[in-house]
Protein backbone atom coordinates (compact mmCIF):
# COMPACT_ATOMS: atom_id res chain seq x y z
CA UNK A 1 0.00 0.00 0.00
CA UNK A 2 1.16 3.53 -0.75
CA UNK A 3 1.32 6.11 2.04
CA UNK A 4 -1.88 7.69 0.72
CA UNK A 5 -3.66 4.35 0.82
CA UNK A 6 -2.44 3.72 4.36
CA UNK A 7 -3.62 7.17 5.42
CA UNK A 8 -7.06 6.59 3.91
CA UNK A 9 -7.30 3.12 5.37
CA UNK A 10 -6.62 4.54 8.83
CA UNK A 11 -9.12 7.37 8.33
CA UNK A 12 -11.79 4.85 7.34
CA UNK A 13 -10.97 2.74 10.41
CA UNK A 14 -11.61 5.86 12.46
CA UNK A 15 -14.70 7.25 10.72
CA UNK A 16 -16.35 4.06 9.48
CA UNK A 17 -17.47 2.91 6.04
CA UNK A 18 -20.84 4.65 5.83
CA UNK A 19 -21.57 7.39 3.34
CA UNK A 20 -21.46 9.87 6.25
CA UNK A 21 -17.76 9.13 6.61
CA UNK A 22 -16.96 10.60 3.21
CA UNK A 23 -16.55 14.21 4.39
CA UNK A 24 -14.33 13.56 7.44
CA UNK A 25 -12.21 11.14 5.40
CA UNK A 26 -11.72 13.69 2.61
CA UNK A 27 -10.94 16.40 5.17
CA UNK A 28 -8.42 14.06 6.80
CA UNK A 29 -6.66 13.49 3.49
CA UNK A 30 -6.52 17.22 2.75
CA UNK A 31 -5.16 17.92 6.25
CA UNK A 32 -2.19 15.66 5.51
CA UNK A 33 -1.68 15.98 1.77
CA UNK A 34 -3.13 19.45 1.11
CA UNK A 35 -5.15 18.22 -1.85
CA UNK A 36 -7.04 15.18 -3.15
CA UNK A 37 -5.04 13.41 -5.81
CA UNK A 38 -6.62 11.04 -8.32
CA UNK A 39 -5.06 8.20 -6.38
CA UNK A 40 -6.56 9.47 -3.11
CA UNK A 41 -10.05 9.88 -4.54
CA UNK A 42 -9.92 6.37 -5.99
CA UNK A 43 -8.73 4.93 -2.70
CA UNK A 44 -11.52 6.70 -0.80
CA UNK A 45 -14.10 5.47 -3.32
CA UNK A 46 -12.80 1.91 -3.00
CA UNK A 47 -12.77 1.98 0.80
CA UNK A 48 -16.29 3.41 1.05
CA UNK A 49 -17.71 1.41 -1.89
CA UNK A 50 -18.65 4.57 -3.80
CA UNK A 51 -18.11 5.52 -7.41
CA UNK A 52 -15.05 7.66 -8.09
CA UNK A 53 -17.23 10.22 -9.87
CA UNK A 54 -19.32 10.54 -6.72
CA UNK A 55 -16.23 11.26 -4.59
CA UNK A 56 -14.97 13.75 -7.16
CA UNK A 57 -18.38 15.44 -7.27
CA UNK A 58 -18.42 15.85 -3.50
CA UNK A 59 -14.84 17.10 -3.36
CA UNK A 60 -15.43 19.63 -6.14
CA UNK A 61 -18.34 21.17 -4.25
CA UNK A 62 -16.13 22.38 -1.41
CA UNK A 63 -13.50 25.06 -1.97
CA UNK A 64 -11.39 23.70 0.88
CA UNK A 65 -11.29 20.19 -0.63
CA UNK A 66 -8.83 20.90 -3.39
CA UNK A 67 -8.38 18.49 -6.27
CA UNK A 68 -5.34 20.26 -7.71
CA UNK A 69 -1.79 19.83 -6.35
CA UNK A 70 -1.03 22.38 -3.64
CA UNK A 71 2.06 23.50 -1.75
CA UNK A 72 2.90 22.55 1.81
CA UNK A 73 1.24 25.72 3.10
CA UNK A 74 -1.90 27.21 1.62
CA UNK A 75 -2.24 30.97 1.90
CA UNK A 76 -5.75 32.29 1.40
CA UNK A 77 -6.55 36.00 1.31
CA UNK A 78 -10.18 36.98 1.80
CA UNK A 79 -11.48 38.58 -1.39
CA UNK A 80 -14.94 39.70 -0.28
CA UNK A 81 -16.10 43.22 0.04
CA UNK A 82 -15.04 44.23 3.58
CA UNK A 83 -11.49 42.96 3.09
CA UNK A 84 -11.45 44.48 -0.38
CA UNK A 85 -12.27 47.89 1.07
CA UNK A 86 -9.59 47.42 3.71
CA UNK A 87 -6.89 46.76 1.10
CA UNK A 88 -6.75 43.08 0.24
CA UNK A 89 -5.38 43.89 -3.25
CA UNK A 90 -2.18 45.28 -1.74
CA UNK A 91 -1.77 42.17 0.38
CA UNK A 92 -2.19 39.89 -2.61
CA UNK A 93 0.20 41.96 -4.70
CA UNK A 94 2.85 41.84 -1.97
CA UNK A 95 2.57 38.07 -1.57
CA UNK A 96 2.60 37.56 -5.33
CA UNK A 97 5.80 39.57 -5.63
CA UNK A 98 7.39 37.89 -2.67
CA UNK A 99 6.60 34.31 -3.68
CA UNK A 100 6.82 35.05 -7.41
CA UNK A 101 3.47 33.40 -8.09
CA UNK A 102 0.04 34.51 -9.21
CA UNK A 103 -3.18 33.69 -7.34
CA UNK A 104 -3.87 29.97 -7.89
CA UNK A 105 -0.20 29.08 -8.34
CA UNK A 106 2.31 27.23 -6.19
CA UNK A 107 5.83 28.50 -5.51
CA UNK A 108 8.64 26.63 -7.29
CA UNK A 109 9.93 25.26 -3.96
CA UNK A 110 6.40 23.86 -3.38
CA UNK A 111 6.25 25.55 0.02
CA UNK A 112 3.30 27.87 -0.69
CA UNK A 113 0.15 28.04 -2.76
CA UNK A 114 -1.57 31.41 -2.96
CA UNK A 115 -5.37 31.42 -3.19
CA UNK A 116 -8.22 33.77 -2.44
CA UNK A 117 -11.18 32.87 -0.26
CA UNK A 118 -14.74 34.02 0.16
CA UNK A 119 -15.75 35.67 3.43
CA UNK A 120 -13.86 34.20 6.37
CA UNK A 121 -16.05 35.96 8.91
CA UNK A 122 -13.46 38.50 10.05
CA UNK A 123 -14.94 41.57 8.40
CA UNK A 124 -14.30 43.66 11.52
CA UNK A 125 -10.58 42.93 11.34
CA UNK A 126 -9.79 42.94 7.65
CA UNK A 127 -7.91 42.37 5.58
CA UNK A 128 -7.64 38.83 6.76
CA UNK A 129 -5.24 36.10 5.67
CA UNK A 130 -5.50 32.39 6.38
CA UNK A 131 -2.50 30.10 6.31
CA UNK A 132 -3.59 26.48 6.55
CA UNK A 133 -5.95 26.64 9.55
CA UNK A 134 -4.46 29.73 11.19
CA UNK A 135 -6.15 33.14 10.88
CA UNK A 136 -4.15 36.38 10.65
CA UNK A 137 -6.42 39.43 11.00
CA UNK A 138 -5.61 43.07 10.19
CA UNK A 139 -2.56 42.24 8.10
CA UNK A 140 -0.49 44.80 6.23
CA UNK A 141 1.61 43.91 3.18
CA UNK A 142 4.78 43.96 5.32
CA UNK A 143 3.22 41.89 8.09
CA UNK A 144 1.90 39.35 5.61
CA UNK A 145 5.40 38.79 4.20
CA UNK A 146 6.82 38.51 7.71
CA UNK A 147 4.29 35.81 8.62
CA UNK A 148 4.92 33.95 5.40
CA UNK A 149 8.67 34.05 6.05
CA UNK A 150 8.11 32.50 9.47
CA UNK A 151 6.15 29.68 7.86
CA UNK A 152 8.89 29.28 5.27
CA UNK A 153 11.46 28.77 8.01
CA UNK A 154 9.28 26.16 9.74
CA UNK A 155 8.73 24.27 6.49
CA UNK A 156 11.32 21.80 5.38
Amino acid sequence: MTTTEVLIHDLVEKHGKSRNALMPVLQGVVACEKFLSEEAMIAVARELDLSAADVYGTASFYTFLDTKPRGKNIVRVCKTISCHMQGKDAIIKAIENHLMVKVGETSPDKKFTLLTANCLGWCHKGPVMLINDEVFPSVTPEKAIEIIEEFAKKTI
Binding site: S51, A52, Y56, G57, S60
Partner: peptide
Protein backbone atom coordinates in the same frame (compact mmCIF):
# COMPACT_ATOMS: atom_id res chain seq x y z
CA UNK B 1 -26.90 6.00 -13.38
CA UNK B 2 -27.11 5.86 -9.59
CA UNK B 3 -30.65 4.80 -8.73
CA UNK B 4 -31.46 2.44 -11.59
CA UNK B 5 -27.99 1.19 -12.47
CA UNK B 6 -25.82 1.56 -9.33
CA UNK B 7 -22.95 2.67 -11.53
CA UNK B 8 -22.67 6.44 -10.97
CA UNK B 9 -20.37 7.02 -13.90
CA UNK B 10 -21.80 10.53 -14.05
CA UNK B 11 -21.84 12.99 -11.17
CA UNK B 12 -22.56 16.64 -10.48
CA UNK B 13 -19.39 18.64 -9.90
CA UNK B 14 -18.75 22.14 -8.57
CA UNK B 15 -21.53 24.41 -7.41
CA UNK B 16 -23.67 27.35 -8.36
CA UNK B 17 -23.18 28.60 -11.89
CA UNK B 18 -20.00 26.51 -12.17
CA UNK B 19 -21.97 23.32 -11.69
CA UNK B 20 -21.91 20.75 -14.46
CA UNK B 21 -22.35 17.04 -15.05
CA UNK B 22 -19.28 14.97 -15.80
CA UNK B 23 -17.32 11.79 -15.20
CA UNK B 24 -14.54 11.19 -12.70
CA UNK B 25 -11.99 13.97 -13.31
Amino acid sequence: CDELQSVSALAVVNKGDHQYITTFL
